[in-house]
């Protein structure tokens, strides 16, 4: 084939074609002359080979196979025990506590966090300083230490009272029985989440161009409308991924309440293995539940992110999510469709 075309190639000085061939390459037909334009146009493009990537992929695949193999064959994992305890009542009760503690802390933490972010962004110097100080101190103290402080509040302040600051007191109550483990966990984690979410929200709001607020103000939009309709939707793409991270972190961080004897998912598992010494299988039960919950949250986060990508991509925003007025419920429903069984259950109910 090459010889047939060589006749037609314009007569040019021979090029040192040989020197270009790398040692590892498959043998290239060696040409005496520069190939013609037709030959170049007809030539197939060969991407650069990346043997290093292939080797590492194979090595990792082998390691992964070994991991799966040992998980399945090492009977000290006691998978049958894991299966037996996976949906036991104490585990499910612990799971429920973990879930609602996470939800409650997230909700109240963000409520507080938005307020703290607003203080930080306000024009008032005192509010800004207080907000900064709060975030600084809360972020500096490990959540476990905060939790223990709240739990030990009674020893610090035996009584609390409502009244005039530095003046008369109207109501006084004892703290000894006020801070149960769950309440201490709720308060401590909420304060922690508030500090982190305040920074996330503040960062998101600052990421929106100042001109957006000005344009909305110039149109005569009220302050809360400017925030809800113009600034917040544009801040969300910056807020959602970080918040998803925070939520997943919180879900797992709730496990620290086991140190103050709150029966969450982890502590419920611990209570069982303290009796029957099946430590590893019960830790696996808790682990698998955490993995399942985190997976669900990640999927949800993906859809929320897609929703707020509206107008960001060239071709009309987030696919089907492009229309206005697509609410949280629609996002939730989009998530359900991934899990056919759940959807069928819902269909049966309605």
């Amino acid at each position: 084939m090459t010889t047939a075309k060589e006749d037609r190639t314009p007569k040019e000085p021979p090029t040192p074609e040989r020197s270009r061939a790398a040692p590892g390459d498959p043998p290239v037909p060696v040409l005496d002359r520069r190939p013609s334009d037709e030959q170049l146009l007809a030539a197939r493009l060969v991407p650069l080979r990346r043997p290093g990537q292939w080797v590492s992929a194979v090595v990792l695949l082998v390691l992964f196979a070994m991991l799966v193999h040992t998980l399945l064959t090492n009977d000290r994992f006691q998978w049958d025990v894991v299966g037996r305890y996976f949906t036991r009542a104490p585990i499910l009760h612990g799971l429920a506590l973990t879930l609602w503690l996470t939800a409650a802390v997230m909700a109240s933490g963000y409520l507080l966090g938005v307020g703290i972010a607003a203080m930080r962004l306000s024009g008032n110097r005192v509010l800004r300083a207080l907000s900064f100080g709060y975030v600084w101190i809360v972020r500096s103290v490990p959540p476990l230490v905060q939790l223990l402080f709240w739990y030990e509040l009674a020893s610090l302040y035996p009584t609390l009272s409502l009244g005039i600051p530095f003046g008369r007191e109207f109501v006084t109550f004892r703290t000894a029985h006020m801070f149960s483990g769950v309440l201490a966990a709720y308060v401590g984690l909420t304060l922690d989440v508030a500090a982190f979410s305040a920074e996330i929200v503040r960062g998101g709001v600052l990421s929106v161009d100042r001109g957006q607020t000005e344009a909305a103000q110039a149109l005569g939009l009220g302050r809360s409308r400017v925030f809800r309709r113009i600034v917040l939707p544009q801040a969300m793409p910056a807020i959602v991924p970080a918040s998803g991270n925070l939520l997943i972190g919180l879900l797992k961080a709730t496990s620290i309440v086991s140190v103050i004897a709150v029966q969450d998912l982890l502590y419920s598992a611990q209570l069982i293995y303290n009796q029957n010494f099946l430590i590893v299988p019960l830790l696996l039960v808790a682990t698998i539940w955490y993995v399942v919950l985190t997976t669900l949250l990640s999927v949800g986060q993906h859809y929320v992110e897609r929703h707020y990508a509206r107008g960001r991509r060239g071709a009309g925003g987030g696919g089907g999510a492009a229309r206005a007025g697509r609410g949280v419920w629609d996002v939730a429903r989009a998530n359900l469709s991934l899990f056919g069984a759940t959807r069928r259950d819902l269909a049966g109910l309605s």
């Binding site: 001109g211 000005e214 107008g311």
Partner: peptide, 13 residues
Amino acid sequence: MVFQQFNLFPHLT
């Protein structure tokens, strides 16, 4: 008011 940088709301049609 019309701005130099347009300042259209990018998330709205």
